[in-house]
């Protein structure tokens, strides 16, 4: 072991690494927000009365879950301009993360919705609420509660997946790290530090979801 540790480049780059963490958090939170919207919307369409919509959602889920995220993000980045839509790397990454996370969220949330007893829905209908109101006011919260641990893991995974966005040079931790590494060749020190940062970010995410859970899903159940 002749390798001499030298953290000077990391220390010099620390301010930009730390702000890049904010970039990672930003991508994660925006991606999650989009994923939750796609997830809930997808569940509604997945069980809609219109057959074509159901198929569309199923095809979307299959497509996304059976192809690599890196290919998805490249496809969005390089294919959309051909359709006349030109997006910067960061919005592209958010869309890709949202679409990818959304496809998984559809399956997870759907499981939660199916765990709600028919009696709950019937009680809502019998009180004169419309189907959409029953879903929004009665089904959704207990359904999300039931699957919240799975959703949390999926979203922590989404947070870590933001590093793939370095492939299109979106502003986030891994791409900044790559730059420092290629300027200094201190690979071990740079990626060691970044690993630690990701660990902290994951931990923060779990805390964040813990807080949400405590705020919205802490009602007592038998």
């Amino acid at each position: 072991m002749n390798y001499k540790l030298d953290f000077t480049p990391v220390l010099d780059g620390l301010p930009s690494l730390l702000t890049a963490c904010l970039g990672t958090l930003f991508l994660s939170l925006c991606g999650m927000a989009l994923a939750i919207v796609i997830g809930i919307g997808g569940v509604v369409l997945r069980d809609s009365r219109i057959k074509q919509l159901r198929w569309l959602v199923m095809a979307f889920v299959e497509l996304i879950r059976n192809t690599p995220f890196l290919v998805q993000i490249y496809f969005i980045y390089f294919a959309l301009p051909l359709l006349g839509v030109r997006l910067d790397p960061t919005p592209t990454a958010i869309i890709a993360l949202g679409i990818n996370g959304g496809a998984y969220a559809i399956e997870i949330i759907r499981g939660g919705v199916q765990s709600i007893s028919k009696g709950q829905i019937e009680a809502g209908l019998a009180l004169g609420l419309h189907k959409a109101q029953v879903f929004r006011l009665i089904v959704l919260r207990p359904a999300l509660r039931a699957i919240f641990p799975s959703l949390t893991s999926q979203f922590v995974l989404l947070t870590l997946t933001t590093s793939v966005a370095s492939a299109i040079s979106a502003y986030e931790l891994t791409s900044v790290a790559q730059r420092i590494e290629s300027d200094s060749f201190r690979s071990f020190e740079v990626y060691g530090t970044v690993t630690l940062f990701y660990l902290v970010i994951s931990w923060l995410m779990m805390r964040f979801f813990g807080l949400i859970s405590g705020r919205y899903f802490s009602y007592p159940v038998k």
């Binding site: 007893s117 009696g119 019937e122 009680a123 019998a126 919260r141 207990p142 509660r145 009602y219 159940v221």
Partner: peptide, 12 residues
């Protein structure tokens, strides 16, 4: 109005 065997109160 309807009352069910298993109450069906909304737990949240």
């Amino acid at each position: 109005g309807m009352v069910f065997q298993h109450f069906n109160l909304f737990p949240h």
